[in-house]
Design a protein around this nucleic acid. Structure first.
Lengths: 371, 371
DNA sequence: CCTCTTGCCGAAACCGGTTTCGGAAACTTT
DNA sequence: AAAGTTTCCGAAACCGGTTTCGGCAAGAGG
């Protein structure tokens, strides 16, 4: 028996033809690897002529450094990490493709890649993130859906690993973020409804664990105040981010002695729940009561009447987040990497001047109940 | 001036605390790196006792091999590549989150990761793929949306790089795939409609460049034949995969002298276009004419009446694809890695026995046109 | 003309692993 | 007891890059 046989594993991929390595480039020009490496990486102690010869030779030979070979010395894998939480409920996330497109596009532009992973639970996300960190599969992370108190943030901050948040958080020390000014959107929504003549405007907030929810409530309150309307705590319902929850919230609002003639929703999906209520009760959205929401999901366009909403540009968000993260990994201080962008109003048919006063609406609803 | 200064770059991340390397584990036990490596990688020339001591020490010290450090010797980065084409039209892909969840879950289970990238055009995909291949960012690739003649397949096959397709292709040599039996679904759809009493059943196919389109047409034809119905070429429209195209296709069918009383759509989204036609003409879907489609997008549930459709399990698809790909990378022959799965019928309200005969429907439509 | 810089590059170490090779010790076999 | 096998592990090379260190040659300054 031959002794040179491997004792077990080893099943190296049968490379069709060997890669072009840095040594090949060096040999081709009669210089050393180190010279090639420095020339290609912008060191200043290389003569301009040499640099040119080297980069041309590299080009000609089709040399591509292996990022994992570089990583072993530099500690950088040139990859961004993205861990998504995919719950069963809202796994159908329409923005996702756009968001990912934005992230990968910005990464590609710098010749970086994106390592993606998913988990179902919050804990799962946490574990997956740790695994990626431990194996150093990415140089930094993009954290979507930031919570007010976010364990991911705490973990990464403690280990001094670069990250950017999509959304803001309670304690911003050492954090970078990109976020949409949801508070401005809700303020504008309320103002718009007020100027249409609505006197009682309600708000259905999003999940209370997320920062955005609080911000949008603030915006709603500010809008009321600016319009000189009083702030009735009863007009803010329990959080609702699903169809069903939105439906329930709408019903509870219309059941009030003095129901609102307009409802702002922190989230489109919840707003679509209101359509079911309207259909059920025979009310017309946009006249009997108005709805303005936030997100800009495609279903909103197909609803009848179309949902007036503040749309966020997910692709741009992904793009900016990746860009900010790369900058941070390259050394920019996190505090300098913070961006806010506005949501854009998409005017459709779900809002308009109120046909009825709150009292009239209440009476009308009572009539409907009887039949 | 100190000479030890770097001439330019070098900005190594200030590691909080040094990683545990294989050398640390070796020193801890007084053995060599090579022993640790072989023990941890299942070589047979390591005493069982030693293996145990080593793996326990590794565990205790929290040792995690860096995959990129391994990759430099083994040529494997333990990562799956996924390049998505995100066109503007259908960037909102509801399955995507599920699909990605499936892929990443299966990858994680084997301690692999997923490298994701996107491009807008077919050429862009091609280029992105090449880049990932050249830099060896992944050991193999998952190709969604396979075309009958697919350049990605040709390129990867030529370079002998592992890949699996979501969908089938014209020339299957050296190919692995996972696919849903769309042909069976369409056959079943046609059979179902025939058994409900429909005599004229149309089909709106998907994009002709994709294999699935041809297969579904085949299924539709088989279904007609099995039901003893004649196959009229005029009942197969131009391809339609969007809302608008589906609407146009539906209109053209209803405009016929002898219109179909049932339409099968290769794609849900196109089927939703039929709803607009129905609303426009005051027809009732499910009685005036029936619709059965394929895909199982969430919007189908919200349509009125709900869209009867054959749903595909995207999550499972992603899961299986990743699993097959990993097997292939580990050495299984591609030809042995082929799987087909059925779509599952979701019965909702868009189909049912025809209220009218084709002739009556035609007359009815003519009446509507006049007014 | 001699020393001091400076510019530029080669030699060699290094990064964290894997794999080859060979040899000492233990175990069989004759 | 000698010779042949096995078992198990250490030494060292290797993978493809990056970075340090030092030295030669050319130019600057005295």
């Amino acid at each position: 028996m031959q002794t040179g046989m491997p004792k077990t594993p080893s099943k190296l991929p049968s490379r069709t033809r060997r890669r072009v390595t840095i040594a090949d480039v060096a040999n081709d020009l009669g210089v050393t690897k180190s010279t090639v490496s420095r020339a290609l990486n912008g060191y200043t102690d290389i003569a301009e002529g040499t640099r040119l010869r080297i980069s041309r030779a590299a080009e000609r030979l089709g040399y591509r450094p292996l990022s994992h070979a570089q990583a072993i010395r530099t500690g950088r894998v040139r990859s961004l990490g993205l861990v998504l939480q995919v719950d069963n409920e809202d796994s159908a996330r329409p923005f996702l493709a756009d968001f990912i497109a934005g992230v990968t596009q910005a990464a590609s532009a710098e010749n970086w890649t994106v390592t993606i992973a998913t988990a179902e639970t919050e804990r799962g996300v946490q574990e997956t993130l740790s695994r990626l960190v431990e194996e150093h599969k990415a140089d930094g992370f993009i954290l979507p859906r930031t919570r007010s108190r976010d364990k991911r943030v705490e973990a990464l901050r403690a280990q001094n690993i670069p990250f950017v948040m999509f959304g803001r958080t309670e304690d911003p020390t050492g954090c970078s973020w990109y976020d949409i000014k949801g508070e401005d959107a809700m303020r504008a929504a309320t103002a718009r409804l007020a100027s249409q003549g609505h006197k009682r405007i309600a708000h259905v907030p999003g999940g209370s664990e997320y920062t955005y929810s609080k911000l949008r409530i603030d915006g709603y309150r500010d809008g009321l105040a600016a319009a000189g309307l009083s702030i009735a705590p009863a007009l803010i319902t329990a959080p609702a981010i699903t169809h069903d929850a939105g439906e329930a919230a709408t019903r509870s609002l219309l059941m009030m002695a003095e129901p609102p003639t307009a409802i702002t929703f922190a989230v489109d999906r919840a707003a679509l729940g209101a359509y079911r209520v309207a259909q059920d009760l025979g009310l017309r959205i946009g006249s009997d009561f108005s709805v303005i929401a936030y997100d800009g999901i495609p279903e909103g366009a197909y609803a009848n009447p179309g949902l007036t909403t503040f749309a966020v540009n997910s692709r741009q968000a992904g793009d900016r987040l990746a860009t900010l993260l790369i900058k941070q990994i390259r050394g920019t201080a996190p505090e300098e990497l913070r961006e806010l962008a506005p949501a854009t109003l998409v005017e459709r048919g779900s809002d308009g001047p109120p046909r009825l006063t709150p009292a009239e609406l209440a009476r009308c609803l009572k009539d409907i109940q009887k039949t």
